[in-house]
Design a protein around this nucleic acid. Sequence first.
DNA 1: ATTTGACCCTGACGCCGCGTCAGGCTCCAC
DNA 2: GTGGAGCCTGACGCGGCGTCAGGGTCAAAT
Lengths: 267, 267
Amino acid sequence: MGDAAESDGLTVGAAASHAGVTVRTLHHWDAIGLVRPSGRTAGGYRLYSAADVARVHRVLIYRELGLPLDDIGELLDAPAVDMTVPLRQQRAQLLDRISRLQSMVDAVDRMIEAANAGILLSAEEQVAIFGQRWDPAWAEGARDRWGETPQWAQYAERAAGMTPEDWRRIADSVATLENDLAAAKRAGVRPGSAEANALAERHRASIGAYFDCTLPMHVCLGRSHAADPGFRAYYDAIEPGLTFWLRDIIDANARDRGIDPDSATWT
Amino acid sequence: MGDAAESDGLTVGAAASHAGVTVRTLHHWDAIGLVRPSGRTAGGYRLYSAADVARVHRVLIYRELGLPLDDIGELLDAPAVDMTVPLRQQRAQLLDRISRLQSMVDAVDRMIEAANAGILLSAEEQVAIFGQRWDPAWAEGARDRWGETPQWAQYAERAAGMTPEDWRRIADSVATLENDLAAAKRAGVRPGSAEANALAERHRASIGAYFDCTLPMHVCLGRSHAADPGFRAYYDAIEPGLTFWLRDIIDANARDRGIDPDSATWT
DNA sequence: ATTTGACCCTGACGCCGCGTCAGGCTCCAC
DNA sequence: GTGGAGCCTGACGCGGCGTCAGGGTCAAAT
């Protein structure tokens, strides 16, 4: 029929398991004055009366709503305040946090998309921006070859934050650069000349829009472009022999800046 | 054309305003090793190189995704790890947090509804559960009269967590109680008798389903019910004179338990 | 009466990402 | 050399407890 201890009150452990919280939680609520046991034993043990346990349950209800403990204390101690006011505030705060989390999810999605697809534009948009000579399959191919490098990660970061408008501006400057390269080659500019080195640096800087391209990386890129029939076809359509000439001015530029192009490695 | 300091690096303040963060943030990121400036002046000032600032920007990108700083550090330092793995994890975590927040919003809505309407059932549901003699307008009237009391707040807490099924069980036990009351009155049970007191306590306990009803509160309730034509009509339809008899057994029960019913107040 | 073992006490640090002092040093311009 | 802006390190605070550490209490079993 219930022992004497129960009629006087429950110890923390009993009250805690009764309410489905931990002992530490009740200690904490006692410390901050949210729920203090109405009695103590001679030895200092907390004793929770039925009313105390009921208060714990009331606290739990508001805690499930995400209210801060301070507000809960005010709510429970206020004699007859309109509880819908803090509840409406809480509702607004929750909705605010949800919308911010949702925008985070959207951003994460864009980032995953950038890392996967390599570009955040549909095939149609790609053709519209980069011109008809652009093959959207190149984006996939690039991911297959470079997708595991830190540079690709860096590229994905930047791509995730770019709009089609940004892409258009980049495409414009790239097209200008390609025209300048073709004009220089036609004009007979020699690799290693000041003009050629300036163009090589402009080319490296344009790659910098995607990731931080060092001189050795630049050399590797120039050579792998030259070895790739697809790239050759693209560049040579602008100006015959442009791919090899570009590789040569990149090599010469690197050499002039103290890098041996023949021992350049990607990393 | 840029001062010497700029070529060597930026001070914290400059780097901070450059990246749109506070100085304290850069201090913190330095302390935890996330972004440490690559140099210091003779006097100990932090000097952020262009590469350092770039790293700050990369950190910002991932911070906007809600990633913890530790994870960001790993991402940036990992040589060629697949970044979609932590991103997918992050996405899952975000969705999880959103759904929990959403359930909080739902709970808050239920609570507001309970505090406003007084009951979380439509008028049709109320009639279906409490029977045709129940007038849904009573719920509104009750809120108008009691809506500002702490007992109403407590009632709203409990109502917010109740399902129609819960209401049905309560309605059943109330109906049983009313029948027992009517039977006892017909049988000539006298107020103050053990049987009458037991019934009064059962009645008080049934109110306890809504809020903690003390003996003085019980007395006040019995008297205000007796004074209300609507309540009288409801109870007297069960058994003529039941309202007054109920008030009397409540008064007697309170007196037998040491409460003077004539000086009982609500609070 | 004592021992055991389960339970209780207080106090303090840790988490996460900084904001916000406090007390003192450095830098650059005048 | 001097003033003021900017920098340094160190420390506390927030929110809601989890998780030891070191020691006392309680009731049952011996």
